[in-house]
């Protein structure tokens, strides 16, 4: 038996070469295909697992939503009921407010109309009273009525101070070129004797002499007005009625 070391070495090298050849042409291609198939299978498994997980999650979500439906329904009904009740309450309150406003406006209008009617009634009463008094006064002779008004004029002038009386007659004169005349306006023409009597009594009351002329004005209703150069003294019912109307108007505005 002869041992050939060259053959041993060559066979060892041959084995090494064969390992490389089979690795190159057999194991690597086969393992590559196997690995690719395994990766594909793993991918399909993973996709299946993902799909299953998604399906499970979807089912859980659906079950959760289905379980929440009664609660949502109850909540929705409760919310709708509360909303309806609130709307009804608001409408009721609004209606009550509107009714109260209308009632308040009606009362206000009624009060205004009542106040206006009262004012008108008072004014009419005043005018009616004046008319009645005028008619009654018409039956009295002019000299008698003039005496009444003259008496009142004298009383008023007597209540004035001396300085006020002097101020009244300032600027007056006796005649045609002595100064301005005092004009006495009455509701009806005074007879000549009465005019002379009024002239004398006015000069006596004011303590001086001055020219006096007489005029008539139906609008006075009754009474007389003394037109001095600087002022006018009214003792007529027209002025009295005007004062009453002013008071009524003041009361109405105050009310």
């Amino acid at each position: 038996m002869v041992f050939d070391w060259w053959t041993l070495a060559l066979q060892a090298v041959n084995l090494a070469i064969l390992v490389w050849l089979l690795h190159r042409f057999l194991y690597r291609p086969v393992l590559r295909v196997v690995d690719a198939r395994r990766a594909e299978i793993d991918g399909q498994y993973a996709a299946t697992a993902r799909a299953k997980a998604e399906a499970e999650a979807l089912r859980a979500e659906v079950e959760t939503e289905r379980a929440a439906i009664p609660a949502d329904r109850a909540a929705a009904l409760k919310a709708a009921t509360a909303e309806a009740e609130q709307a009804a309450t608001e409408r009721l309150e609004q209606a009550e407010r509107q009714a109260a406003d209308m009632l308040r406006a009606g009362r206000s209008t009624l009060a205004e109309e009542r106040a206006r009617a009262e004012t008108e009634l008072r004014s009419m009463a005043v005018e009616l009273g004046a008319e009645i008094a005028g008619r009654l006064l018409a039956d009295i002779p002019a000299e008698h009525r003039a005496a009444i008004w003259m008496h009142r004029i004298e009383s008023h002038l007597a209540e004035l101070t001396e300085a006020q009386r002097t101020e009244l007659v300032a600027g007056t004169g006796e005649g045609t070129d002595g100064g301005t005349r005092v004009c006495v306006v009455t509701d009806s023409a005074l007879p000549e004797p009465v005019q002379g009597d009024w002239r004398a009594r006015l000069q006596a009351a004011l303590g001086t002499t001055f020219a006096v002329e007489f005029e008539t004005d139906d609008a006075l209703l009754a009474g007389a007005e003394l037109h001095f150069p600087n002022t006018v003294l009214r003792f007529s019912w027209r002025s009295a009625l005007a004062a009453i109307r002013s008071e009524l108007a003041a009361d109405e505005h105050a009310g």
Partner: peptide, 24 residues
Amino acid sequence: PITRPVVTTWAIMAVLAVGAHLLT
């Protein structure tokens, strides 16, 4: 020296390598 086992081994190597290549 190239002995018979070496040559036979080369033949086997060739068959296996070519066969593996053809099969894969």
